[in-house]
Simulated scan of single mutants.
Amino acid sequence: MRLAPVLLIYVGTLTGMNAPLGKLAASAGVPAPVWALVVSAGASLPLFAWLALRARLALPRGATARYVVLAGGITFVAANLVLFLALPHVGAGHMGLMFALSPLFTLALASALRMQAPGRIGLWGLALGFAGAVLIALTRGGVSQGMLWSLAALAMPALLAAGNVYRSLAWPEGGDPIALAAWSHLVAVGVFAAAIVVMGLPVGALAQVPLVTGTQILLSAITFPAFFLLQRLGGPVMLSQLGYVAAASGVLVAVTVLDEAFGPLAWVGAGLIALGVGFTVQDQRQGGLAAESRRAIGRT
């Protein structure tokens, strides 16, 4: 169990790097679907290598096949596409903060589906987190294109939340989490590859940022094995904190490395999100979430 907190910081920090790397790729002209393909391809490599070593490469069938298609489509196709499309318009720091909303959105969706509502503290957490996100969006200045992209960025944590709840409700009987993740990422690879071919997107743009591309592939490869180890050692409640660590690391890199600046109002919004997160964590500790809701949040 002593390893679990270390893994939480490790995996969360690496996850937060996705937004800054994505911004660098977008600045070099790499289309969003191309970069999303790089992320899922990098994640698939170690997962399928592990499955091959354990002779577990059987094709998914029936409910499992339906599961990997829907889980991959929601979490790795739709959510990542929103992330990398919005990045050039709102910045890596802003998208990093959106990761912190994923557990909050998951809690809201679980409550709407009557998977036992959160307590009063949890409801305050939801309200504060959403208010903070809207406040950050308003810092983009009036009803402008930047503000609209900022509001559209809220779709990413919403999609992650939908994926969390779906994976909890539809998890196949006896499903191997590594196999499910590998095939879900492969679904994303197939979708993005098809989109790239149909739309004629320039894959060659990756040659403009070879170091960034290599770093992203390596990052994806070393993140997911540790993610599943964290899930096994720390359990769903600890794993649910992943989005918060990712948000902190993403903002830190955006401010210190990419020279992104946040105005006073944006920092107030970030503070409201942090406060909302704290309320939600306290609600979890007090038993405000049912076991099913915890599993949903834990698979962020």
Rank of each mutant, 00 (worst) to 15 (best):
Tyr10Met: 09
Leu14Phe: 13
Thr15Val: 08
Val30Cys: 01
Pro33Gly: 01
Val39Gly: 01
Ala41His: 08
Ala43Val: 13
Ala49Cys: 09
Ala49Met: 14
Ala52Arg: 11
Leu53Asn: 12
Ala55Thr: 12
Ala63Lys: 10
Thr64Ile: 00
Val68Trp: 06
Leu70His: 07
Leu70Trp: 11
Ala71Thr: 06
Val77Tyr: 07
Leu81His: 05
Val90Glu: 00
Val90Phe: 02
Ala92His: 00
Ala92Asp: 00
His94Leu: 03
Ser102Glu: 14
Pro103Arg: 14
Thr106Ala: 12
Leu107Cys: 07
Leu109Arg: 12
Leu109Phe: 13
Ala110Lys: 05
Met115Trp: 07
Arg120Phe: 11
Gly125Ser: 12
Phe130Pro: 00
Leu135Asn: 05
Leu138Pro: 00
Gly142Pro: 00
Val143Cys: 03
Met147Leu: 14
Leu151Met: 10
Ala158Val: 06
Leu159Val: 11
Leu159Cys: 02
Leu160Arg: 01
Gly163Tyr: 00
Asn164Val: 06
Tyr166Asn: 02
Tyr166Lys: 09
Ala170Cys: 12
Pro172Lys: 09
Glu173Ile: 13
Pro177Thr: 11
Val187Glu: 02
Ala188Asp: 12
Gly190Asp: 06
Val198Gln: 04
Gly200Gln: 10
Leu201Asn: 08
Gly204Asp: 09
Thr213Trp: 00
Thr215Ile: 15
Ile217Cys: 07
Ile222Glu: 03
Thr223Lys: 01
Phe224Cys: 02
Ala226Trp: 05
Ala226Lys: 06
Gly234Phe: 04
Gly235Ile: 07
Pro236Ala: 15
Val237Met: 13
Ala248Glu: 06
Ala254Arg: 03
Asp259Ile: 00
Ala266Met: 03
Trp267Arg: 06
Val268Gly: 00
Gly271Lys: 08
Leu272Pro: 00
Leu275Val: 15
Thr280Leu: 13
Gln282Asn: 13
Gln284Tyr: 06
Gly288Asp: 08
Glu292His: 08
Glu292Asn: 07
Gly298Pro: 05
Thr300His: 10
